[in-house]
Structures are given as C-alpha cells and as structure tokens.
Amino acid sequence: MAVDALDRAMGALIGGALGDALGMPTQLLSPARIAELYGHIEDFVAPAADHPVSKGLPAGAITDDTEQALLLGRILISSGGRFDHARWVNALLDWERDVKARGSYDLLGPSTKRAIDAINSGVPAEEAGRSGDTNGAAMRIAPVGIMIPPEPLDALVAKVAETCRATHNTSIAIASAAAVAAAVSLGVSGGDWRAASGHAVAAARLGAALGHWVTGGDIAARILWAQELVRGKPEKEAIRLIVDLIGTGVASQESVPAAFAVLEVADGDAWRAAVISANLGGDTDTIGAIAAGMAGACSGVSRLPQDRIARLKGIHLAEVRTLTDDLVAARAAKAGSGEEVAR
C-alpha cells in the first residue's frame, strides 16, 4: 500500500506537469489558431515565436502551474503541523522575483499576480486574496491532496482554504481547489477517477461555504453538469461542448469543471487528458495540469508515458520524488494519528 501511494502521489505531480507542458504552447490561443499552427497537438511542441506569454520556452517546458504546485508542497512540508502562512507568502514573493528575472512575469495568473502586487504594496496577506476567484489555487493544490487523507473531508477542505488565503480567499476559488485536492487525495488512497470525482463534488460543497463569498456558478453543481454533458459523447463532440458551453477561461467556474469534463472524456487516462486539454484553447496548460494531475493520482506514475516524462523541461524528477516521499510520509503520520489538520 505504501508503494502504491507513492506511485499515485508521484502520478499526481508528474501527470500535472505533463498536462501543463503539453498545454504551454497553446494557452490563450483559440481552437482555430491551434489547428492553424499545429493541426492537432499530440506531443510536446514549441510555442510560436509571437506567442503572448510562452514565446521562447522550449517544447516540453512546464509553467507556473507546476512550479507553484512544487513550491506549495515544499512549504507544506517545512510548515510542520500548521501551515506557515507567512512563509508561503514570502516564498511566493521570492518566486515572483525569480519569474521576473527569467522574463516570464506574464505567466502569472491574474489573481496571484494581483495578490502579490498588493502584498508588495503593503496590503496584509490575509486581505490580499479576498478577490481571487480564478483557477490559480486549483492548479497548484495537488500537494495538499497528497499530504492530507481524504477523510475527514472537512479537515482536508480546511487545509485547502488555509493555503488559499493569501491569493484566492473566495468561496469559488476554495470550492474549486477543494474539489481538485479531494480528487487527488482519494486517488492516492487507491480510488479510481469516478470515485475521485464524487469525492470532489462533496469537497466543493464544503469549500463553497468558506472564504469571501463572490458571485458565480456553484462549483459542485457545475462539475456534475460538465461531466454529464460530455458523458458518452464522441471525443470531437465532447471537445466542442467543453469549449462552447463549459468554457475554458481562467475563471474557476469554467476551467475547473472543464478539467473534470476532460477527465470524463479521457476515461481517466492522464496522457489522453493532457492531449484533449491542449487542443481546447483558452487556459489549456492549467486545465491540462488539473485534469492530468487528477488522472495521474488515480493511476500512478508507473502508468504514465515514461518517454514523455523524460522529455519534460524545467523540472527535476529526483527533487519531485523527494518531495513526494515527504508528503506521503506526512500523510501516513496524519492518518495513523487521526489528526485533524488546519483546525
């Protein structure tokens, strides 16, 4: 069981990286523009020279989705029993400076960018995230799902909310991140992607009661609707429904249900989820990171395409393995003690 949990936990992080890297060159592009440039994305490609945010990155490069997930994982481990909010904010600020130095500031999501700018201007961290309703929290939340057991669910959701406070302290963002974390957590425990989707809906309902309330469609209801919308449909038709009806923008109520719809269409296959996401248009890297990360948690890294993993850029697999070991060890300790976290 310990070996299986490690395999699935690694699958969540590496699956997310695959989805992120495959969607990197197509993010912000329309489906028509993707088809014009690449035909149909089936493997890593370099972005166009005039890409608005990804220009200059090599094929297979990860983006902020994966970098922030790994950063959050490291802060979770270094925080010990209670999430170190100040350390997380400082880590985000350091990371932002590094991103700027690399010339990639525009890769930051709108809510994270706005919150970091506010913190830099002196706004208290607990206030900076009160308007963050986009998908940045959901895209990086997988380490919480790895570290925290799926039950008690309210403890898992509370930890999610705590990590959202500085940048995404809203009902919609917390519900979205809680859904993804719950799916990953159940996957690491041995659940398949269908059971993980059900656990995600329950977590989204709990998360919607936390943070600052903002307007928008109910995340739990939209996940259920999105998966039902594409269930049993041919892939081409399902993609059209995701693009036209669910939406693929950075808004949580679009991209997170879209990721669960992709999981449905891919039948839980992580690489297939990454491929579908990369061709949607819109926030392709984040939808791919979420969908393929959840699928990877439910299958394990051993069932992901090893040749594609070897071609990822900007990620050190040995470091990810070490982080995974630490997160799973912390999970085992919490499960063994019956500890409820973030209370």
Rank of each mutant, 00 (worst) to 15 (best):
P58C: 06
V256S: 01
A261N: 05
D4A: 15
E127A: 10
N135I: 13
G232M: 06
A61W: 00
R311I: 01
A261W: 01
P58S: 07
R343H: 14
A179W: 09
F260E: 00
K334M: 15
S197R: 14
S104D: 11
H316R: 14
R194E: 15
G122L: 04
H85S: 12
G216E: 03
I119F: 00
A175K: 01
A251M: 12
S54R: 03
A59P: 02
L107Y: 11
T66I: 08
G293V: 06
A258R: 00
R240T: 15
A69D: 01
A204H: 07
R303V: 13
G198S: 11
A161I: 10
H316E: 15
D94M: 09
A177Y: 03
D7Q: 08
A342P: 07
H316K: 14
A59Y: 00
L71N: 00
G19Q: 02
A209C: 09
V256I: 14
A200C: 05
G60N: 05
D20R: 11
L153G: 06
A200M: 06
G145L: 09
G109I: 01
L263V: 08
A203V: 07
A251L: 14
V301R: 15
G198Q: 12
V250T: 14
I174T: 00
R303P: 02
V328N: 04
V201N: 05
V250K: 13
S185F: 06
D192G: 14
A291F: 02
A204L: 08
K313A: 10
L18T: 09
G129L: 00
G190N: 11
A138C: 07
A161F: 12
A177F: 01
W95I: 04
G249T: 11
C164R: 10
I287R: 13
G282I: 03
M24E: 12
A125T: 00
R303A: 15
V99M: 10
R114P: 03
G288Q: 05
D267I: 00
A333M: 14
I148F: 02
S189N: 13
R165G: 03
R33W: 04
E36S: 11
A175Q: 03
A137D: 02
L107T: 13
A2T: 15
P305I: 06
H168A: 11
S197K: 12
A118L: 13
R82P: 04
L13P: 09
A128L: 02
A208C: 10
S277C: 03
G249H: 05
A118K: 06
D64N: 08
I34D: 05
I219C: 05
H212K: 13
P52V: 09
I75D: 01
A297Y: 03
D285L: 01
S255L: 07
A291Y: 01
A261V: 10
I116E: 06
E254D: 15
L210T: 04
L37W: 10
K334H: 14
L13A: 09
A86H: 02
P143Y: 08
N279W: 04
